[in-house]
Design a protein around this nucleic acid. Structure first.
Lengths: 208, 208
DNA sequence: ACCTAACTTGAGTGCACCCTCAAGATGGAA
DNA sequence: TTCCATCTTGAGGGTGCACTCAAGTTAGGT
């Protein structure tokens, strides 16, 4: 506990400006956006950014966990509102893929690109843990084949993550990933649910 | 047709040294390897590399199409040796994923990262076209669901490509992709073939 | 042995990013 | 109003890549 005297007004203002700018730029371009650009957007020098946040990770942790956390919390309750384990898991997968597609910052968080942003990491872990609970529920329930593992779920989200990061992604790559889940249900005629529900951003393609 | 006088001996030697070095480095690190490193490996200055090949794409096209072409040709005949459309397509998918995993240069080629390397592009296109023929055959045959499209196959290879490029890939992400094919066969109890056959390089994981 | 067109060289330019720190500006207590 | 601890600034140093071009070297014809 070090004695922390209050910040000067200009310092607090600059922190606020930097946080606003960081939020805007990170959400638009992902967590590896240029810090110079963030400082410029905030109307503050790059030196001030480092004075206040120390590093990129510091800035990330000061800004992203809150928005990502509330998004993921709302998402979690929506998922749990579904009635069957299968519906919940399907909703989780398609929903996460959509969220990652809409939000490059969340996407980078799930890819663990900045492992020193510990606050953010914790939040992502909680969300992934929720998904893995759903896998276990679906196993217990008998609806999900045991050879679809919790790790497989992680791989699906990771694949979606790296796919989102490529500006030349072909259209509708999401189908490949969601099909992998469709394949794993024990009942026949695997769900059209997941396949058709991907609402996300699909970029135009480098397709032929 | 410009009158092309023979090259001087030192020039020809340097071309050979550069090609050998480029092959080595490209195969090890992918087509975006540092050109300085290639020149250094060849024992030649970076200026000479540019004198002789003009650009990265020029060097790629002078070196990769031959090896990639013969690999893919052999692969193609191996695939066609399988008896059923289903076996052929499964072999194609798992085999391509393996090849891409072993060979970063081929992987980059399939991702079309250097669209100006026209010779290489042509070769990759032929291979992808083979896969798409196999999809059509499996459709005609009735064994593959019509909602698995040729484009879906392209997406599978593309996903494998970007996954291969990430040094922090989790273990066994390949299963997610091959499962997407398993899902699409019209007969029940979808193939253990594809799932268990991925022989490739699976890196250790960022898994927990 | 000489000569020159062909060739090689590598320091240099440019770019984009990260991060630092000496010098200057300013909030706010006294 | 004074004054200094706090804060901001932005040029500058470092990295790592692509690409160029004036100056120097050499193959190989005569």
């Amino acid at each position: 506990m070090t004695e922390t005297r209050p910040l000067r007004r200009d310092a607090r203002d600059n922190i606020a400006k930097l946080q606003a700018a960081a939020l805007e730029v990170f959400l638009a371009k992902g967590l590896d956006a240029s810090l110079d650009e963030i400082a410029r957007t905030a109307g503050v020098s790059i030196g001030t950014l480092y004075n206040r946040f120390g590093s990129r990770e510091g800035l990330i942790d000061a800004v992203i966990p809150e928005v990502a956390g509330s998004k993921l919390l709302a998402f979690g309750t929506a998922v749990l509102a579904k009635t069957t384990p299968r519906e919940r898991l399907e909703e989780f997968v398609t929903g996460m893929i959509d969220l990652q597609g809409e939000d490059p910052a969340l996407n980078d968080a799930i890819l663990r690109r900045y492992p020193d942003a510990v606050a953010l990491l914790g939040i992502c872990d909680r969300s992934i843990a929720l998904g893995q609970d759903l896998v276990r529920d679906a196993h217990a329930d008998g609806s999900l084949s045991p050879d679809f593992t919790e790790h497989d779920l992680f791989c699906m989200l990771w694949l979606a993550g790296i796919a989102n990061r490529d500006p030349h992604a072909p259209a509708n790559w999401q189908r490949v990933i969601t099909r992998a889940l469709d394949q794993a249900w024990t009942v026949g005629a695997a769900g059209q649910h997941a396949q058709t529900e991907v609402r996300g951003g699909s970029r135009e393609g480098a397709e032929k």
